[in-house]
Write a protein that binds this DNA or RNA. Structure first.
Lengths: 125, 125, 125, 125
DNA sequence: GTGGTCTAGACCACA
DNA sequence: GTGGTCTAGACCACC
């Protein structure tokens, strides 16, 4: 009854992360307009307030700019993107190292394992 | 139409994964007895039914054996362990490669990035 | 009907500013517990959500720390206070200079005017 | 019991203050005619009644004179201007001193702080 | 109790 | 139309 296994991030963060990923992957271009708060709320099936929070969060991080009465736009500052990319790399690599360590592998073994990896098996089970 | 963002894995799977990790890391030895369903339920703070499902899942994968009236034991089949380890490695590496590709990195860059990685907290294991 | 003269800051910012002032003036001590969200909401006559926002804002600025289940506390980091004080001084001086310039005074005249000032007249009209 | 945080000055006072500032800075000369109530209302985007109150307020203070059928004029009494300027200076300095005291500064420190102040945007006037 | 998140619905300012 | 703020009321996780 104590819960400890749900632990899913807040929705407004999940959506923010999704948008960040889309920007990093260039599915959203620099300067591009995001859907309005209300529209995105409908698309995402959440309350407009939740999206509002998402956009605020993104603005706080300098990833988007909002122009009153006009909308919310991906920043045009290329530098932000670069930093974002680096930070996400750090995160992915960190997660990887932690996971592999848990399996008892050394750094050298990780690199070896990575080198040998041939994408092929995509089936989960 | 509302729910869509909770989506964290089922608890019984999360617990199964935790046990698997403990086996792979030799914190649980081959042939060792697992806590009883009731005891594990208390330890984990979940309903016994949930643990029952966890154990069934592990048995289905050949990772544990249930002996009526005695309890649940980690398999003694060394081979299972090896396969398990490999499969988990594949999974971790696969996830890593997918993530890094999403960030636009080539295989060579991934290895480089991994090589350069210095974790913040170095003294873990 | 276009409004341009209201321009009062959002309530949640006004309350945050008030708290900051109290901290700077040492009416609130470092490490001291703030009223709970609900209590402060009642005291201030606003919705708890508004206070929640206030506290979030203060935390974002590193001025308070929140401990889940315990409450919200003024940071114990003395450094934050010093920076805060400096920033507010800058603001006050800046406002003063702007106002005096508007009255057509030079920097030298401002200093002279300040030097000659004897507190006495407090009546507004 | 709810309202308490809007509290920005009445519009008619805001406009009066603006006009006073323009007079003090000689952007409006002694004896000069002010725009008609209707015209000023349009310029300012407010209701003519509001401007009417503004002009009344200014007249009450002896700053403007209304001549039936001709319009509203800045007073020609130089003395008024001087007094006005002094009073506004007193007010600005008083406010400044109060603010700085609240931050724990002595008179000497205030002067020092003012002397050291370098505005960001220097080229204003 | 505490803070954190979310919904539903409203009003405002800006363009 | 846009984003920004606010209320009312709810549920959650943590202590």
């Amino acid at each position: 009854m104590t819960e400890e296994y749900a632990a899913s991030k807040p929705i407004y963060i999940q959506i923010a992360d999704r948008i960040i990923r889309e920007i990093v992957r260039r599915e959203l271009n620099l300067g591009e307009k995001l859907p309005s708060v209300r529209e995105m709320a409908i698309q995402s099936g959440v309350n407009p307030n939740t999206i509002q929070r998402t956009y605020s969060e993104l603005e706080r991080k300098g990833i988007v700019e909002t122009r009153r009465g006009q909308g919310t736009f991906v920043t045009e500052d290329e530098e932000v993107l670069i930093v974002l990319n680096e930070r996400m790399q750090q995160e992915v690599v960190g997660q990887f190292v932690r996971n592999m360590k848990e399996l008892g592998l050394s750094k050298t073994q990780m690199i070896e394992s990575l080198r040998n990896y041939r994408e092929s098996q995509d089936g989960e089970e």
